[in-house]
Amino acid sequence: MSSSPPPSHPNVNPNPQPTLTLTGTLDRETTQRLCEEARAALQATGAEVLDCDAAGVGPPVLAAIDALARLQLTARRAGGRIRVRNPAPHLRELLDLVGLPIEVEVGRQAEQREPPGRVQEAVEARDPPL
Rank of each mutant, 00 (worst) to 15 (best):
D27I: 06
D27P: 04
D27L: 10
D27V: 10
D27T: 05
D27E: 09
R28D: 14
R28N: 12
R28K: 14
E29Y: 09
E29D: 12
T30M: 13
T30W: 06
T31R: 00
T31M: 05
T31V: 04
Q32L: 12
Q32I: 13
R33F: 05
R33Y: 04
R33K: 11
L34M: 11
L34V: 03
L34P: 01
L34N: 00
C35G: 02
C35W: 00
C35Q: 02
E36V: 13
E36C: 08
E36M: 12
E37S: 03
E37L: 05
E37I: 03
E37K: 01
E37G: 02
E37Q: 10
A38C: 11
A38P: 05
A38M: 10
R39A: 15
R39E: 15
R39N: 11
A40P: 01
A40G: 03
A40N: 00
A40W: 01
A40Y: 01
A41M: 09
A41N: 04
A41C: 07
A41G: 06
L42F: 07
L42K: 04
L42R: 02
L42M: 11
L42A: 07
L42T: 08
Q43M: 13
Q43C: 11
Q43A: 09
A44F: 05
T45K: 04
T45I: 11
G46R: 08
G46Q: 11
G46L: 15
G46W: 06
A47S: 10
A47C: 12
A47P: 07
E48R: 06
E48C: 05
E48F: 03
V49K: 00
V49I: 14
V49Y: 00
V49L: 07
D51K: 11
D51I: 15
D51G: 08
D51V: 15
C52L: 08
C52P: 04
C52I: 10
C52E: 03
C52F: 01
C52K: 01
C52R: 02
D53S: 04
A54R: 06
A54Y: 06
A54Q: 06
A54D: 10
A55C: 12
A55L: 14
A55M: 14
A55G: 12
A55E: 14
G56W: 10
G56C: 13
G56Q: 13
G56H: 09
V57G: 00
V57M: 03
V57Y: 02
V57W: 00
V57S: 00
G58T: 15
G58A: 14
G58N: 13
G58K: 10
G58H: 09
P60F: 11
P60V: 11
V61S: 05
V61N: 03
L62I: 12
L62F: 07
L62V: 09
L62G: 10
L62N: 06
L62S: 12
A63L: 10
A63R: 02
A63E: 05
A63G: 03
A64V: 12
A64I: 12
A64E: 13
A64Q: 09
I65D: 01
I65W: 00
I65T: 03
D66G: 04
D66C: 07
D66M: 09
A67H: 07
A67V: 11
A67N: 08
A67I: 12
L68A: 04
L68W: 01
A69H: 08
A69E: 14
A69Q: 09
R70D: 08
R70E: 12
R70G: 03
R70H: 08
L71C: 06
L71I: 08
L71G: 01
L71F: 04
Q72F: 02
Q72N: 08
Q72R: 09
Q72L: 10
